[in-house]
């Protein structure tokens, strides 16, 4: 998954990530636990996360 410039760091994605794959410190960053399930995409209020393709 990719995080774009729209991210403000609200951490909604991290709370809803079922794989504990997102940490947020001013901005979301996605770690190796990510299985590309894309749950975070829907929960981001700013459309800041997208798939890799």
């Amino acid at each position: 998954m990719k995080v774009n410039q729209n991210c403000v760091g609200c951490a909604q994605c991290a709370a809803y990530c079922p794989h504990n794959a997102i940490t947020v410190f001013g901005r979301a960053s996605i770690n190796r636990n990510c299985v590309e399930c894309k749950t975070c995409v829907d929960y981001c209020p700013l459309g800041a996360i997208s798939g890799d393709e």
Binding site: V8, V24, L46
Partner: peptide, 30 residues
């Protein structure tokens, strides 16, 4: 800014044990 906030917490609660659960920032469209 976040680091300074975390630093403040240490000064405000010296010697206390706590866990940082989440840092959330807000601006622009949210």
């Amino acid at each position: 800014e976040i680091a300074l906030g975390l630093d403040d917490l240490k000064t405000l609660f010296p010697g206390k044990e706590y866990e940082v659960l989440m840092v959330q920032s807000y601006s622009g469209g949210w």
